Amino acid sequence: MQIIFPKEPPEYCGPELTLAFAAMVDGERLECVITAEALEDHFGAESTRAEDMLGAFDAHRERIEAATRRLLSETRGRCAVLRSGYVRFYEANVRPS
C-alpha cells in the first residue's frame, strides 16, 4: 500500500473540533482527520482554537503523518480518524528506525 501526504495545509472544522488533512492511498485521495483531543494530549495544542490546533499540527506534522500512515496500513485505508488513544498506543509501540 502506497501512502503519500500532499503538503497541503490542514482544514479546521470547529463544530467537530478536528483538523482534516489529505492522504493519497494507492493513488486515491482520502480525507484524514485528527481530533483536538489528540492534538492537545500528544502534540502540544494549548486549546481547541484553530490557531492552536494548526500550530501543533505544523510543528508535529511528521509524527502525525507517521501515526496516520500506520493507522491506514492497519485498516487497509479505511479508517482515517486519528484519536488520542490511538496516538498513545502508536507512540508506546513505535519501533525506532
Rank of each mutant, 00 (worst) to 15 (best):
T68R: 07
E28I: 01
M24C: 10
E8I: 00
L39Q: 04
L30N: 07
I3A: 12
R61W: 02
L71G: 01
E16K: 12
R63F: 01
A23S: 10
V25P: 01
L17D: 14
P9T: 07
D58P: 02
A45P: 07
I34C: 06
G55K: 08
V87L: 04
E51K: 15
I64M: 05
E37C: 08
S47R: 06
A38E: 03
P15E: 14
E40L: 10
D41E: 15
C13N: 15
L71W: 00
M1V: 10
N93R: 15
G44R: 05
R63E: 06
I34F: 07
V81H: 11
L39R: 04
G77T: 06
M24H: 14
A67C: 12
E62C: 02
A56T: 03
V33H: 10
H42P: 01
G77H: 08
A36I: 01
C79E: 07
G27W: 03
T68L: 14
E91Y: 06
I3L: 07
C32G: 06
V87I: 12
C13I: 10
S97C: 03
Y86C: 11
A20P: 00
L19N: 04
L71K: 15
I34Q: 05
E91Q: 13
E46Q: 15
V81Y: 03
E37F: 05
A80Q: 07
Q2P: 07
R76V: 07
H60V: 04
A56Y: 09
F21L: 09
A66M: 08
G55H: 02
L54S: 03
R49F: 12
G85I: 00
R95V: 14
E28W: 06
E62T: 14
A23V: 05
L72T: 02
M53S: 07
V87F: 01
F21E: 11
S47Q: 11
E16N: 11
